[in-house]
Design a protein around this nucleic acid. Structure first.
Lengths: 213, 213
DNA sequence: CGTTGTGAAGGTCTTCACAGCC
DNA sequence: GGCTGTGAAGACCTTCACAACG
C-alpha cells in the first residue's frame, strides 16, 4: 500500500542530521531533538517532525538512540549501497571532487574520471587514471555507475548529460552554469556557484540601500 | 512606504533569468515569458510573477524588452557594484573558484587568496599571490572586500568565518561541510556537495525499492 | 518530569484563471 | 490576437500547542 511521499525539504535535511551525529561522536547513547537541532542548525520541532516521517525512533522523556538513528538515516539515504560515481571534466573543480574524501566516507565509489583534453587524459588523480570521454559509456556499463558529476564548461554540459543518461546513469549532479534537460526518470540536481554569488550580491546591495535610506 | 520584502525563492531565480538572456544573445529585442521560462527551466507564469515584483517591465502582447530587463536584473542583483571577494583555503576547490571566469564576468573582483599551508603561500593563482591567513584582515580592510568564500576543511570553517565577520565581510559562501553560525546582519549561504550526493543517493534507493516492489 | 509525536494554524511559494492592455 | 499582470486557489513547508508516554 502506498507509502506517502516524503517531503523534499525534509530529505534535504537528513544529511545534516547524519553529519551532526558524526560530529557529536559516541559520547552519549541518546540525543534530544533540541540538541540535534542546535548542531544541525534546524529548529527542534522541525527535527521531530522530520524524524517522525521515518517512523517512531525516539523515546519520550529520553530522546533518540544515536546508533539506531544513524542506521535509519543511512538506510533512508541509500548510503549502504556503494553507488558508483563518475566525474566528467577534470579541471580544478573536477579534481577537487574526485579527491573529496566525503565521497568515500559516505560509501560512494569513484569509478571513472573523464575529460577530452589530451593534456589531462592519462594523468592520475587520487589513484585513478583520467580517461577520454569516449570511454565513458563502457566504464559506466562495466562498473555499474549510477551517479554522474558534471564539472565541464557550460557549453559541453547538455551533451555530456545526454550521454550519461543514455549510458544508464540515473542521478546527476551538475556544477556547470547551465540549465539542463533530463528525462523524468532521471534525478538532476544543480550546484550553482554563480547564482549563489549573485544572491549574496543582492543582499549586500539591499543592505547598502537600506543603510543609505 | 516600506518596500515589501521580495520572496527569497524569486531572488534565487533572477540569476537564471539573467544567464538565460545572455545565452539567447541579441537576436531579438524582446522575449516572452514562455520563451524565457523555457530557457531558464521555469514555468512561464512563474516568470511573469517574478518579474512583476520588479515593476512592470513587460509590454502586453509583445513581451519583455531584453536590454531593459537585463539592466533591471543587474541592478536588483547588485552586479554594478564590483564587490570585492576573498577566498580562504586554496586547495583544488579554492583554486577552481579563484580561477572561475564567472566571477569576473559578473563584475566581482577577487582581491585576496589565503591559506595556512606554507607549501601554498606565495604561489600565484590567476595572477594573484596566495597570502597567509594572518594577512586576511588587513587585505579585507584595505581592499574593501565584502564577500568571503570558505573552501577550507570543515574543522577550520567556523574560525575563518568569525575572522571574516570581524574583519567586516557581510556575505559568506561556505563550501565546507559544516553548519556555521554568523550574526544576523551577515548573509551566509551554503554549497553542500556531500548533502547533494546523499539526496541523489536517496532517490536512487527509492527508485530501486519501487522497482523491486 | 522531560521529551517525543502530531493535528492544527500560519506562512511561503506555485499554479490557475482571467482581466487588462498593446 | 497575443502577452503581461495579478487576485484567488492550491500545494507545500514550518511553527505552534499540547496530548501521549516512557
Amino acid at each position: 500500500m502506498g507509502k506517502r511521499a516524503l517531503p523534499a525539504a525534509m530529505i534535504a535535511r537528513l544529511p545534516l542530521y547524519l553529519r551532526s551525529l558524526d560530529e557529536l561522536g559516541q559520547r552519549n547513547p541518546t540525543i534530544s531533538s533540541v540538541r540535534l537541532g542546535a548542531v544541525a542548525g534546524v529548529a527542534a520541532t522541525q527535527v521531530r517532525k522530520d524524524l517522525s516521517y521515518l517512523g517512531s525512533y525516539g523515546v519520550r522523556g529520553v530522546g533518540y538512540r544515536v546508533e539506531e538513528l544513524r542506521e535509519r538515516l543511512h538506510r533512508e539515504l541509500g548510503l549502504t549501497r556503494g553507488w558508483g560515481v563518475v566525474v566528467v571534466g577534470i579541471g580544478n573543480l573536477g579534481t577537487a571532487l574526485a579527491e573529496y574524501s566525503g565521497l568515500r566516507l559516505w560509501g560512494f565509489r569513484v569509478v571513472g574520471l573523464f575529460d577530452v583534453d589530451p593534456a589531462r587524459v592519462g594523468n592520475k588523480v587520487n589513484g585513478l587514471r583520467i580517461k577520454h570521454l569516449d570511454r565513458m559509456e563502457s566504464v559506466v556499463e562495466h562498473e555499474q555507475a549510477e551517479i554522474g558529476i558534471i564539472a565541464t564548461p557550460a557549453a559541453a554540459a547538455q551533451l555530456v548529460v545526454d550521454r550519461l543518461v543514455k549510458a544508464g546513469v540515473r542521478s546527476i549532479l551538475n556544477f556547470a552554469p547551465a540549465v539542463l534537460q533530463v528525462p523524468r526518470a532521471v534525478t538532476l540536481r544543480r550546484v550553482d556557484v554563480s547564482s549563489e554569488l549573485q544572491i549574496l550580491s543582492h543582499h549586500l546591495a539591499r543592505a547598502a540601500g537600506r543603510a543609505a535610506g
